[in-house]
Design a protein around this nucleic acid. Structure first.
Length: 584
RNA sequence: GCGUCCUUAGCUCAGCUGGAUAGAGCAUCGGCCUUCUAAGCCGAGGGUCAGAGGUUCGAAUCCUCUAGGACGUACCA
């Protein structure tokens, strides 16, 4: 369809220049001025060219220009042109467009939608970045969904993508759960309690917060433990290693359940020292300065901000310290053209400072760093607050969703048809979750209403799965009854209903939607397009019988169209991490 | 205080670099299962695109201001 579009742009350009010649005016850069749109309603045509931009040159009203151009072009082979007030609308040769499209989708198959928009680019995407003191919650799930999806979309746009995670495994907050474990742990382990490691550790983090309310020395004790840890105290270190392992194993289990993966894990514990070296180097170079209070700081007054601590006065590192070290290590490991940090909007200030500091330190690639800032997930009552226990735990949520999906399967008496009910339910749960999280533009805050958000009806992930499963089983039936349709010929001119043409347009615009999602780093564009496609198929399927059309050529043609729809859905599912189900 | 962002139907969200009558889902009401899965399809009601100016032939979209809200402005991450 892209080629058809550019073909029409040059036709219109020819018409405009002919018309201009007739009027005795000269037009420059015509093609660049031409705007292509889609008419608001299908009856108006397939492409629209507004004539407003040329009113100034012609010094006549846009509708008059439209008729002038139409006249100049006369009769056309490629389709037809219609004047609609100030617009020139194009009606494409549907049969030809459909035929080309169906061939293209078959030829490209899983590759349909891929492009070379970012070919040759190395892009690193950082996301998730959990702390090792508690399990993942709903906020992480949004981060993970965005990061994973963006990575897949960038890859589809031709980039070489490296997904990286940064485990925040050191710092005073980590010491808090360790301290609580020392005090109240009684030697419990994930094995002895049967509690998933990250949850067990998280319970002690909660315990610390309770205890610190009663004992005012708790915070100071945690700080002391951090100093011991940075000094390399063997007992502290051993506890740290044990508890970290528990948490990371638990978190990795959750990643596996949600289809998230990473090419490389970075650990704050490995990078904070090199970060510290960088800060000291920067101090020597005069990029940083030593404050009266003993801390090493960066002066940001040149970019209208205050000063920022790079290293504490007691010599221990802050978040910024290790992020410097991590960024440098990453560029050495994978010389990226772009590093995208998928991190919440509340850290915008942090990244501004980080990028600025790296630039001041003389790293040319500092300009290639980008903070993909996303909004918070709120509850109907307001923010999630760990202190008030309103945090939605990731594992619990997945379990709830799976249970609900299982109940649906049973209620709809689909258990037998589906086969493995638990696996299917798990995949439906993922579709519901990922679609819900990705249909919203990343930068916006969103509301998660547990009761309403988890519906499987309407504009949801399971709806998409349902439509694709139905297409799939219809195609299975077609193949089983292959004999009936022997000798049938694919004839795209038979696909002449509006519903079929709608599908052709949606299928053909899928690749440009993926490219747009890649350049805007916005998976919701893909999600919305898949919904439109599934919805259009649903209407078509309801109105047009495929296997029972009564004409085997028509059946074959509709089957081909359905196969193309299914291909787009499958390819798109992969980009937004929704599992395809052959049965549901 | 200062900075960044948000505000579209009762609710949750779309709305491409400004373009023809602002769209979905949920919720409400009404139709459709002896025919390819009713997790479906069709229809109805529901909008001063927060408000006011401005730019433009044309503004939900761009600019300014105002009002609400979120976040940030830590030797937390």
């Amino acid at each position: 369809m892209d080629s058809v579009k550019s073909q029409w742009i040059s036709i219109i350009a020819r018409g405009l220049s002919l018309a201009a010649e007739e009027k005795g005016i000269s037009l420059e850069n015509i093609e660049e001025k031409i705007v292509v749109e889609r008419p608001p309603r299908a009856e108006l045509g397939d492409l629209a060219f507004p004539m407003f931009p040329f009113a100034r040159d012609f010094k006549i009203a846009p509708p008059a220009i439209a008729s002038l151009v139409a006249q100049a072009l006369g009769d056309l082979q490629e389709g037809s042109l219609k004047i609609a007030g100030p617009y020139l609308n194009v009606f494409l040769d549907r049969s030809a467009v459909t035929e080309d499209l169906l061939k293209e989708v078959v030829a490209r198959a899983d590759g349909y939608g891929r492009s070379d928009l970012l070919a040759g680019q190395k892009v690193m995407v950082e996301f998730s970045c959990p702390n090792t003191n508690k399990p993942l919650h709903l906020g992480h799930l949004r981060n993970d969904a965005i990061g994973e999806s963006i990575s897949r979309i960038l890859k589809a746009a031709g980039a070489e993508v490296q997904k990286v995670n940064l485990i925040n495994n050191r710092g005073v907050h980590i010491c808090k759960s360790m301290l609580a474990y020392q005090k109240f742990g009684e030697g419990k382990t994930p094995e002895s309690t049967g509690i998933k490691g990250d949850h067990l550790v998280g319970d002690f983090y909660v315990k610390f917060n309770q205890w610190s309310k009663e004992d005012s020395t708790a915070e100071e004790q945690a700080q002391e433990m951090l100093r011991q840890w940075e000094k390399g105290d063997p007992a502290v270190n051993e506890l740290w290693e044990t508890m970290n392992r528990w948490t990371i194993e638990g978190i990795k289990e959750t990643y596996e359940k949600t289809g998230i993966s990473f090419d490389t894990y970075y650990y704050e514990s490995n990078t904070y020292l090199s970060g510290r070296d960088q800060v000291l180097k920067g101090l020597e170079k005069g990029v940083f300065y030593k404050d009266e209070d003993g801390s090493i700081r960066l002066d940001l007054s040149d970019i209208g901000m205050d000063t920022k601590v790079m290293l504490r006065s007691d010599g221990t590192s802050v978040y910024m310290t290790q992020d410097l070290g991590t960024a440098i290590a990453r560029h050495e490991d994978f010389p990226f053209d772009r590093l995208i940090y998928v991190v919440g909007a509340e850290q915008e200030y942090h990244f501004k400072v980080l990028f600025h500091a790296l630039k001041q330190l003389g790293f040319s690639w500092a300009d290639m760093l980008y903070h993909l800032s996303y909004g918070m997930v709120n509850l109907p009552e307001g923010k999630m607050k760990s202190r008030e226990g309103t945090v939605v735990d990731a594992d619990d949520l997945l379990e709830d969703l799976s249970r609900m999906a299982r109940e649906e399967i049973v209620a709809k008496e689909r258990a037998e048809a589906v086969g493995d009910v638990d696996t299917t339910a798990g995949k439906i749960a993922l579709a519901a979750l990922h679609y819900f999280l990705l249909q919203v533009s990343p930068y916006k805050d969103m509301v998660f209403n547990p009761q309403e958000s988890l519906s499987f009806n309407g504009n949801t992930g399971p709806y998409l799965q349902y439509m694709s499963a139905r297409i799939n089983s219809m195609l299975d039936k077609y193949n089983e009854r292959a004999q009936e349709f022997e000798g049938a010929v694919l004839d795209s001119s038979l696909l002449n209903s509006e519903a079929e043409w709608d599908l052709v347009k949606l299928i053909s615009s899928y690749p440009s939607q993926v490219r747009q999602a890649a350049s805007e780093l916005n998976p919701s564009i893909v999600a919305a397009h898949l919904y439109d496609t599934a919805k259009a198929f649903s209407r078509f399927y309801h109105d047009c019988s495929i296997l029972g059309s009564g004409d085997k050529n028509l059946t074959k043609s509709r089957v081909a169209l359905s196969e193309a729809v299914l291909q787009v859905l499958k390819n798109g599912f992969d980009l937004i991490n929704i599992p395809f189900l052959s049965k549901m």
